[in-house]
């Protein structure tokens, strides 16, 4: 497939603008004033140790988590406006979960059509056509009639991506999409995401895949303990970090066998 003529060409890409975002669970503040911009068509990767708030930040963007303060703009929508039409906004925001969350009682095809039919009010045949096209895009057109439990983890995640794409989103959120996968299926999922990035999809990706981040991301944001520690072009943040915490994190991630004699 030609990179520049993706089927998303008719859908405009949306950007994200986050200002001073705060989120607490009880007295535990997990996001301490995050500001972040994703330009339309950009790919931004969020990296950082577990518990740093990356996933919470991502889940705030489509209001799966309710922020306690700050503003989030997604395209034309102000997500943090109490009067925002959440259901309408979420149609434009594709979400891919760590554990796929496919609907186990529906076939692969029905997973990709149900929301088109019930939410976008597309006809069954139109929805099926869109779904098949997107299943082809992720390389799984031949599995349309299977059920999720008959697929490998990597295949399930690619179906989840096709399901999100079938709503013609202007923005895609990925929450550690490869963390629950067997190592040998990670590559297929990353390949699909790489293709989407090249087609001009706006993407906000929480990931531990440093290779993917370095290669695909326009910008990388390093978070720790609820704040953005460092951000910039992927090359700079991953290959030449300036902050001690970033250096420490990357040293651990890129060389997991390294034994830290002082701390352990």
């Amino acid at each position: 497939m030609n990179n520049s003529t993706g089927s998303t060409s008719t859908v405009q890409a949306a950007g994200v603008n986050i200002k001073d975002l705060r989120k607490s669970y009880g007295s535990n503040e997990v996001l301490k004033g995050i500001s972040l911009t994703v330009e339309p068509g950009q790919v931004v990767c969020l990296i950082g140790p577990s518990g740093s708030g990356k996933s919470t930040l991502l889940r705030c963007v489509n209001l799966l988590e309710q922020p306690n303060g700050g503003t989030i703009n997604v395209g034309e929508f102000e997500a943090t406006d109490p009067d925002v039409d959440l259901n309408r906004m979420r149609r434009n925001v594709g979400m891919v979960f760590q554990h796929f969350n496919l609907f186990p009682h529906l076939s692969v095809l029905d997973n990709c059509t149900i929301s088109q039919i019930k939410v976008l009010k597309r006809s069954k045949s139109e929805a099926a056509e869109v779904a098949r096209h997107n299943l082809e895009r992720v390389g799984l057109g031949h599995l349309a009639d299977r059920f999720p439990d008959q697929l490998s983890g990597g295949q399930q995640q690619r179906v989840a991506i096709a399901r999100a794409l079938s709503m013609d989103p202007q923005l895609m959120l990925f929450d550690e999409p490869t963390s629950a996968l067997d190592p040998e299926t990670v590559g297929d999922v990353l390949a699909v995401m790489r293709k989407l990035a090249h087609e001009g999809m706006t993407m906000l990706v929480v990931t531990h895949e440093m290779g993917f981040a370095r290669e695909v991301a326009d910008r990388v944001v390093f978070m720790d303990a609820g704040v953005v520690v460092e951000e910039g072009p992927a090359e700079n943040v991953i290959s030449a970090p300036t902050q001690p915490r970033t250096k420490e994190f990357l040293r651990r991630v890129l060389d997991p066998t390294h034994i830290d004699v002082v701390e352990d």
């Binding site: 799966l64 979420r90 969350n101 709503m167």
Partner: peptide, 18 residues
């Protein structure tokens, strides 16, 4: 039913009742 099912459905723009 796992919580992720409701989250996935809501993320696709479905209202809660749907």
């Amino acid at each position: 039913v796992p919580k992720g099912q409701m989250e996935a459905a809501r993320s696709l723009g479905m209202p809660h009742w749907r």
